[in-house]
């Protein structure tokens, strides 16, 4: 019984599946040939829409809204780009060589050529996506991994100040345990031997460190694009980027 949530692993997986955000589309279609400005405008337009949906999504993860507001803010600020990137990989998993940013923005690596420094990130995204393809990532595993990224992102925060903070941090750890149980339960349904299940769990979790590395690269790249005035960032995206760059500096 899911460590205080009152949910079985199966029920928790179903809740997380139901929390999945809807598909998004470009607000304004992008014409070819792509330019640095047009592509960055499209990518940030999509990211901005997805961030709003990500907040709704997080609120539907069982137990998340019971955390202190400051922990909720902090968790999302730490992991938003990891979550956007994992979502991109999931959409692209059945399309080798392509990155499906949205149904109306499907790019191959060469199309990243027009944006300085983005091809290196595209290559890493494609490589991690093909690893997920090799592993035949299942939808249930994907949603558990995404929730784990959210709950595991708090490692850079300051020490808790109040009893409420201490309690909230404890809740995050218990939630993380519940989602881990849910992922273990999902893997257990694959019919693999117990040893193979452990190896699959390790393979999936090891990819999270690649995603963190990728998102750090992405934050660095977006900051450069902002500094060079290649793209005007919308309010929420700007705020999320600033939260990252001010923490790391």
């Amino acid at each position: 019984e899911g460590r205080g949530l009152g949910l079985s692993p199966e029920q928790l997986v179903n809740c997380i599946l139901e929390a999945e955000p809807p598909q998004i589309y470009l607000r304004e279609p992008i014409n070819k040939p792509y330019t640095e400005a047009s592509m960055m405008t499209s990518l940030t337009n999509l990211a901005d829409q997805e961030l709003v949906l990500m907040i709704s999504w997080a609120k539907k993860i069982p137990g998340f809204v019971e955390l202190t507001l400051s922990d909720q803010v902090h968790l999302l600020e730490c992991c938003w780009l990891d979550i956007l990137m994992l979502g991109l990989m999931w959409r692209s998993v059945d399309h080798p060589g392509k990155l499906i940013f949205s149904p109306d923005l499907r790019l191959n690596r060469e199309e990243g050529n027009c944006v300085e420094g983005i091809m290196e990130i595209f290559d890493m995204l494609l490589a991690t996506t093909s690893r997920f393809r090799e592993l035949k990532l299942q939808r249930e595993e994907y949603v558990c991994l995404k929730a784990m990224i959210l709950l595991n992102s708090n490692n850079c925060s300051s020490l808790p100040q109040t009893p409420e903070d201490v309690e909230s941090r404890g809740k995050v750890l218990r939630l993380l345990d519940s989602v881990t149980d849910a992922l273990v339960w999902t893997i257990s349904r694959t019919g693999l031997s117990s040893q193979q299940q452990s190896i699959r769990l390790a393979h999936l979790l090891m990819l999270l460190s690649h995603i963190r590395h990728l998102s750090n690269k992405g934050i660095e790249h977006l900051s450069t694009m902002k500094r060079k005035n290649v793209v005007l960032l919308y309010d929420l995206l700007l705020e999320m980027l600033d939260a990252n760059t001010s923490q790391s500096s």
Partner: peptide, 24 residues
């Protein structure tokens, strides 16, 4: 919670009980 935190859009979207999509 600091005043700066309270002015965050993220803070506001999290606090609002209705769907953030409506707010956006």
């Amino acid at each position: 919670t600091s005043l700066k935190e309270k002015h965050k859009i993220l803070h506001r979207l999290l606090q609002n009980s209705s769907s953030p999509v409506d707010l956006a």
